[in-house]
């Protein structure tokens, strides 16, 4: 079998999720005796190809073209489709990021391939891949298999471990796809990054605040703690709907579903729809005055007290802790 792994890069750097996809494909490939072909697309990105052998790619196909500096849904989908067909790829893996989620449905149609999105685990059963993915924002899990000969799996970022790079080297091949103007009919013309701000979907530590903070100005306490931890700031639906925080920070069923290593919930009672979005976090800390708050039922560690007193203490003591270690 041939596995194709699409590796996302932005601004000339491979995203962590790109390494995760290559490693996850490679782990399965060992069981099924398959070849892993990584694909990387962009402008002036050829030098990145050599990083992928160490994560398990056997071959890296590089598409380096000045027109591909910014993302284009139509052009990228066309290129990946051409690569899968040219290589007779059986399975395509990509990351369930904004880019991967955008590309996967188009590729599903182009390749007439079944698609399982946002998978959190993959296993091989007699050569067939069984994927587990959350539904209802994590309130349920389904195990799915695909009925088509070409199959696509997108993997939830931050769940599959990329591991350390080895000294293995992959064969590197340049590919010039056929692209016409029509392929660029949707085009990103600029990228605006929120400077210094971490995204909840990508961060391994999240500090989230809710109604218990009483007013938007008090989110400064959450931001300070997040800064010390190098964490992203998250928010409950209640405070997003109240306009205290931007919607991109919302964690939960109508926000983002996250699986960080550490999730600190401050003044969040834990409505069903919030818990759904974060209960798969590896370690959950809850700080809430209300002892009966549902958040404590899923928290590994809880402090049933006043956030206005606990947060400053936690922030300053963590500063000392990190200063020493």
């Amino acid at each position: 079998m041939k596995y194709i792994a699409f590796v996302e890069q932005r601004s000339g750097q491979i995203k962590k999720n790109g390494f995760e996809v290559v490693r996850a494909s490679s782990n399965l490939a060992k069981e099924t005796n398959s070849e892993v072909i990584a694909v990387i697309i962009g402008k002036n990105i050829s030098s990145l190809a050599s990083e992928l052998g160490g994560f398990g790619a056997n071959k890296v196909i590089v598409i380096d073209d000045a027109r591909l500096e910014n993302y284009s849904t139509t052009a990228f989908a066309s290129i990946i489709n051409q690569v899968v067909k040219k290589e007779n790829g059986n399975i395509l893996f990509l990351s369930a990021t904004a880019m991967g989620r955008d590309l996967a449905p188009r590729l599903s149609v182009k390749l007439n391939a079944g698609l399982a999105v946002d998978c959190t685990s993959l296993k091989n059963e007699n050569g067939k891949i069984i994927a587990t993915r959350p539904v209802y924002a994590g309130k349920g899990l389904i195990e799915v298999s695909l009925t088509t000969s070409v199959q696509i799996f997108s993997l939830r970022p931050n769940v599959f471990n990329a591991g350390d790079s080895s000294n293995e080297q992959a064969t590197i091949e340049n590919f010039t796809p056929e692209l016409n103007d029509e392929d660029f009919k949707v085009q990103v013309v600029a990228v605006e990054t929120s400077s210094g701000k971490k995204d909840v979907a990508e961060s391994s530590i999240i500090v989230s605040g809710g109604r218990g903070l009483r007013e938007s100005g008090n989110f400064g306490l959450v931001e300070k703690l997040a800064e010390v931890l190098g964490a992203a700031v998250g928010a409950s639906r209640a405070v997003v709907d109240a306009g205290w925080r931007p919607h991109e920070e919302q964690v939960g069923q109508t926000g983002k579903t996250v699986s960080p290593t550490l999730y600190i919930a401050v003044g969040i009672s834990g409505a069903v729809q919030h818990l759904a979005g974060m209960s798969s976090s590896k370690c959950i800390v809850a700080i809430n005055k209300d002892k009966e708050a549902p958040i404590f039922s899923i928290a590994n560690y809880g402090i049933t007290g006043d956030a206005f007193e606990i947060l400053p203490a936690l922030t300053s003591q963590l500063k000392i802790f990190f200063g020493k270690s």
Binding site: L141, V144, T147, I284, Y301, G302, T304
Partner: peptide, 23 residues
């Protein structure tokens, strides 16, 4: 194109520790 083989509820987290009520 996608066959659901089974649906399950994620394993419940074991009850955590309440480690205090103030700073």
């Amino acid at each position: 194109l996608v066959e659901v083989n089974l649906m399950k509820i994620p394993p419940a987290k074991p009850a955590g520790k309440i480690i205090g009520s103030d700073a």
